[in-house]
Amino acid sequence: MSALKVIVSAIEQVADGICHFTFAAADGGELPGFSGGSHVVVSMPAHNRTYRNAYSLLSSPADRRNYQIAVRLQEQSRGGSRFMHEQVKVGSRLDISWPVNLFPISRVGHKHILVAGGIGITPFMSQVHELLRTGADFELHYAFRSPQYAGFIDQLQQLLGKNLICHDQSQRQVLDLQALLSQQPLGTHVYVCGPAGMVDALLSTAYELGWPDAHVHHEEFLAPPIGEPFTLRLKQSGKSVEVGAEVSMLEAMEAAGVDAPYLCRGGACGRCELEVLATDGVIEHHDHYLSDAEKGSGKKIMPCVSRAKCSFIELNL
């Protein structure tokens, strides 16, 4: 898939354990435009493997010179956030995906309530720029443990004025979801991103109050389709290919010089379908192509997105 080549132009510590990275296009040109709520997947080439993490774009979608992301150092980092904090310097070159939006603002909504908890503020950063530009009716509720954990607070106050409502837990300012969600005019949409407890509380409050599901949005971060490594045996060619945890079967075959068919590489077109002859484990189907019955049969696999939890799988190729 096509990647964007970027160069790190600035790094700033914005809050405890949170770093803010600025990317510019490596060729000095403009970066692609994007919509509020978008993220990019950053590829991080560590010495023996490549990590791929998704981060929300914080910058204004109108700014085509830079992208900005915030990375919190995870206590139980798989390696990605640690790599970003420790290995990446100003001038580092990285590959990132094109922007993807799984958390867009509804364009038919009449009012928008954004609810952020802690680092969950990140997808809202680009959204508020978009909402300001379109002149939409909106307010941002920002809940945080204490001011030193409230990233971007100054910038947000400046941008939003009274449309920013802070809930500082250290000051015992509690976000009353029942009060917030019971007084919104028809046509309102609510968006939440934050700790799981907060997201769940908002979803259930909205549900109990009779908000239709289509008006309630929460950020679902796209995890890269990773799994466990296994061996691919190709019956016709007699080849054996090792599939790493973070590469697809198709990519592994291509890297091994196997000419496997493909078209869409997205699990939809059916072109790369392969016949499974044997496996000592279970197939993890991620595609949209095979019917449930076909998936259940264990005889077919779409190697562009699907994989297996096994030590080996044998294909008729």
Binding site: L181, P185, L186, T188, L209, G210, W211
Partner: peptide
């Protein structure tokens, strides 16, 4: 009525 109603109005 629509103008005056809140979310949760069925």
């Amino acid at each position: 009525i629509l103008q005056q109603s809140v979310m949760g109005t069925r």
